[in-house]
Write a protein that binds this DNA or RNA. Sequence first.
DNA 1: TTGTGTGAATCCCTTCACAGCG
DNA 2: CGCTGTGAAGGGATTCACACAA
Lengths: 217, 217
Amino acid sequence: MTQGRRQEPVSKKISESAVRRLSLYLRALEELDRAGHETVSSGQLGFKCGTTAAQVRKDLSLFGSFGKRGLGYRVEELILAVRDILGLTRPWRVALIGAGRIGSALFEYTGLGHRGFEVVAIFDCDPSKIGQEWGDSIILDVAELERVVRELDVEIAILAVPVEAVQGVMDRACRAGVRGVLNFAPLRLKVPEGVTVKDVNLVIELESLTFALRQSR
Amino acid sequence: MTQGRRQEPVSKKISESAVRRLSLYLRALEELDRAGHETVSSGQLGFKCGTTAAQVRKDLSLFGSFGKRGLGYRVEELILAVRDILGLTRPWRVALIGAGRIGSALFEYTGLGHRGFEVVAIFDCDPSKIGQEWGDSIILDVAELERVVRELDVEIAILAVPVEAVQGVMDRACRAGVRGVLNFAPLRLKVPEGVTVKDVNLVIELESLTFALRQSR
DNA sequence: TTGTGTGAATCCCTTCACAGCG
DNA sequence: CGCTGTGAAGGGATTCACACAA
């Protein structure tokens, strides 16, 4: 039962969608916290995130029991619990590979640095970019990828490189020890055992939009 | 039955995930086509897209029957069929709202223009950006949003504006006739009836990555 | 024989409903 | 009471398995 404490990861399979909702809950909770709310009910939280009270309770119950019956959840406590579940209790060392438009958009995006993701290295292959300073990082030659990834113990690689280059770059990053990959290229990467990939594909989003629009016409 | 023809949209509910897979299939098919393949089996297509033969056949069977038993699918025909299903047989008029980093990344991204999405207007509120030319578009003052959206009959708005501004801008775009929205702000938009929203949220992707990494440690 | 199209079976996720605790 | 936590029910989505067509 472990009242109020997170259960240790039993070998239960957690669905991707539940995890994505937890991430939404976390954002909503942080907003509530900033707004000075002490407690929140599953109904309120669900409403803010576009889901139901039952869904919220079920999602949380996969990891423990964090609420008080009759009262709801203490916002601060739940924030800590969800951060812990999502693995956000420590910063993650990220390398940004590709300093083009997408890369720079990501780098500037305050969401990253202020949310526990430390961009410890930026790589590009364009000689005119190598050596430029972004914030207090310097753009490095992608030729040095392996060495730098190993030395800085990079855990996550964000791949914002052209589709032709992406598989090769990923292979190299993984061999140097990267275990998580965020891929912006529209291509299914072949990954070694033990490496997790998430794809971000804007064309899919747009095409599922046009599908919906076409239907409702 | 309707051999080789797309069935008219019966009121069957099509899952979001099936649609997303169709978009993947389309990309794989186009690659096969460029590589000169005439036909493809559900197994091959599934493998390229990280799913199974049965899944491919089921997905396609939601919309008609496009293959030949014992032979597979003709690549060219299936491309046309899937484009039709996804609503890609005509270009869509898109407005890009917000000409910051994300906006420029999207605009440059060749995927858009070359895939049936016409960026017919770009808006920003920064006076130093208004009037700049991007390609053969000029950045317009967001104050003119309603007029321009109406005049150019914009159908889809890509919202790449700060989170504080996004709900207001979306409301205005929808009142002017926009029916589809791609939202980059980490916020659940309240949308009027008949408008479809897709959210793109990089933090969710990263956090589901850290969840996975945390588990496998 | 090959590989599609599709009912049936299975699995997983969401929703329901309520016991139980504060 | 109010609201959580959770078994049970319900509903979708995926997988299976096979009849059938080329």
